[in-house]
Write a protein that binds this DNA or RNA. Structure first.
Lengths: 248, 248
DNA sequence: ACAATAGTGTCTATCAGACACTATAAC
DNA sequence: GTTATAGTGTCTGATAGACACTATTGT
């Protein structure tokens, strides 16, 4: 068992001391792109590289609370993320060149991130395109690129089985806004008519507000929808085709 | 970012020291029941309660390696688990009354667990029915009951999307053996004919050996199948019905 | 008028589940 | 023979995707 038994458990010096941190992958959509909140480091190691918001867990603090606190502190964005879920824990002995750090990674979704500012001296926070990270156009510190890739996988899976896509939008949204989430995360386009029917047929996914929205480039005005603030499992899942070709 | 910046990172005394452990939920099937390898504690706290195998991660040790090592040490079963996957990390500040412990939980599948013996002084290891844990007929230490419930969920999900069910069987198995895995984990029965067709239609799931197996109670002998030792994603998933009634 | 987006109608191929039926063993 | 399990045939209802079509705006 984790706590083992015997005298060693009662001797505070008998176990190896680890640093435990949290790191958060916060997704948002801005300018029709899937983006991440990252911090540009201004200290070695990995000076000038981008890193996930995060930091040490306090000794009496819950892991999820630590994730929320660090996000606010490091980005200056005072509203915490809308949806927050644990991703996995990364603990390779050499993942930080300075010492042994085990980090509990989380992923989150935020609607309309305000322009972040560096809250602490950690560097400055900004939005970075997920594509730029996936395709290696920006360099990430430590194993953070892997964490982002894993988070993107988790988000893609979650879109199939929960209402999490609605967390990307604040008040009222169009069905095509929701479709955009799926298209950006999954990397291919969905047929608008079928998507509309599917989404509206799932009970408790979206509720019509009665309002309509005009389109900038013309086109028929769209109905606006709302959703419950809480992310719930879908009663009927939106299956993504396997072996679907990514759009170039 | 997890490693933050500035002087604090270089000062070994500047971060809160945590104990980091691993705990493993090892599933196996014996006597037509889904069972777990647990350790009966003989020290307080939770004396006489059952607990998951696990223990402290060494300071230079990878997390997965720690999970495998602790399992072997605490159960005396020298062959490690067939399939091992990270579950999630549990770190509520009060989860261990003695000190702050963050545990990285894993779940695993083993075919034919030999009778375990206590390897260390931790207590004695044995197999316990998953039903007994789920329905509260056995008491588990710390938050280990919740970990088991989460692991069971993860296993159920993984059955839909990967070949992990084959890890429950050693050499050759019948299609009905494979079906048994799904039925025990999902908690309801599957139609034998449809299951057979589905499984055999998925490429790379099972390979016929040519051999046949007699049934103890009579009945037509079954063909025996093998599988790749590695767990792979299924090309076509075995979807579990939502809202399926559990069998009593 | 045309372009663009929203939304509906409809067809089809696929697939899960139900269930009848055949095959081969123990008793 | 009966019972039990393995495995196949076949039907049906649900559903995802393709795509034609209508609706409503801007230009």
């Amino acid at each position: 068992m984790s706590e083992s038994t015997g005298a060693e458990s009662y001797d505070p010096g008998a176990y190896p001391p680890f640093a435990v941190t949290v790191d958060i992958v916060v997704f948002t959509i801005r300018d029709d792109r899937l983006q991440l909140v990252l911090i540009q480091r201004n200290e070695p190691p990995f000076q000038r590289a981008w890193a996930l918001p995060g930091g040490f867990v306090h000794i009496d603090e819950d892991l999820e609370a630590a994730a929320r606190r660090e996000f606010v502190e490091e980005t200056g964005v005072d509203a915490g993320p809308t949806h927050l879920a644990q991703l996995r824990t990364y603990g390779a002995p050499d993942r930080d060149p300075r010492m042994r750090v085990v980090t509990v990674a989380w992923w989150a979704v935020m609607a309309e991130v305000p322009d972040p500012e560096a809250g602490t001296d950690a560097g400055y926070a900004d939005l970075v395109g997920v594509d730029d990270v996936v395709e290696g156009r920006v360099e990430l510190a430590f194993d953070h690129r892997q964490i982002v890739l894993d988070a993107l996988d988790a988000l893609g899976d979650e879109l199939e089985n929960s209402t999490v896509a609605t967390s990307f939008w604040k008040e009222a949204f169009r069905i095509s806004d929701l479709r955009k989430v799926y298209e950006l995360v999954w990397g291919f386009e969905l047929e608008p008519g079928n998507f509309q029917r599917k989404v509206r047929s799932i009970e408790g996914f979206v509720e019509p507000t009665g309002a309509r929205s005009l389109n900038p480039d013309g086109g028929r005005p769209a109905q606006l929808f709302m959703s419950e603030p809480t992310v719930r499992p879908l009663s009927s899942s939106l299956r993504r085709e396997r072996d679907r070709k990514k759009k170039p």
